[in-house]
């Protein structure tokens, strides 16, 4: 699917379409819903971040929208998954990359095996977010309707809250890395997710196998 990306020969020559408009819309919907849920969730999580709740309309409003937007986040995730699932399949080669991930961290990327459209780190981030979304969904629904839990199962409620919080914290950890990488560590990524294109050089550097596929053996002027 992702391999639908083609070399663009329009005004922006030498650019490769990294993300289709649909993918970008899906990403930003996911990001937007996530950020709202995260901000309000953090407000509910600790009084020191309750101001986050206040800036998005106050407690009752935030509490009203949090589960609904959270549900929206899950739906956009499904949409995203629908588009990316083949590119995000974990393959045996990913293991090699992950074993050598320290080279990635130390920016010695040439010591790493070549990666396809998404590298193993991205894949892991994606699957982590997806599984956490499932957990957040299940626990969130219980927290949404606590009165549906019988008295004898009451003890489940705090457990559910803890699991929900833990899952959310994991996603926040992922997000910190994701945003850092996208904004600071890998220049051009923001452009890729906003305008949709990367340079040939970016592609060769960060997704050489993918580059090979999309370039399809042709020399580009």
């Amino acid at each position: 699917m992702g391999t639908r990306a083609v070399l663009h020969r329009g005004p922006k020559t030498d650019q490769i379409e990294r993300y289709t408009p649909a993918e970008r819309i899906a990403h930003w919907l996911t990001a937007g819903t996530y950020v709202y849920a995260m901000a309000t969730g953090l407000g509910f999580f600790t009084p020191y971040m309750y101001w986050l709740v206040e800036i998005v309309g106050g407690g009752p409003t935030a509490r009203f929208w949090h589960p609904i937007i959270g549900l929206g986040y899950v739906f956009t995730n499904v949409y995203l998954h629908h588009q990316w699932k083949s590119d995000l399949k974990l393959i045996p080669e990913d293991r090699v990359w992950l074993d050598k991930v320290k080279y990635y961290i130390t920016n010695e990327d040439d010591l790493l095996p070549e990666q396809d459209r998404f590298d193993a780190g991205q894949k892991l981030f994606y699957w982590g977010m997806l599984y956490c979304a499932v957990i957040l969904l299940v626990t969130g629904v219980v927290m949404w309707f606590p009165e549906s839990i019988g008295r004898s199962w009451h003890w489940v409620l705090p457990l559910v809250v803890i699991i929900h919080s833990a899952a959310a914290l994991i996603t926040i950890g992922g997000l910190i890395i994701h945003v850092y990488m996208g904004v600071f560590m890998v220049p051009g990524s923001v452009k890729a997710m906003t305008i949709g294109y990367v340079s040939r050089g970016w592609a060769i550097l960060h997704a050489p196998l993918w580059y090979k596929k999309v370039a399809n053996g042709r020399t580009v002027k």
Partner: peptide, 26 residues
């Protein structure tokens, strides 16, 4: 939770200072 978030942000900041961004163009 609060601490781990704080460490997360600090971690990436330190990483940036130590290793900086990756090469983006050729």
């Amino acid at each position: 939770g609060g601490l781990s978030m704080m460490f997360g942000v600090m971690g990436v900041a330190i990483h940036y200072l130590r290793f900086g961004p990756k090469e983006a163009e050729m």
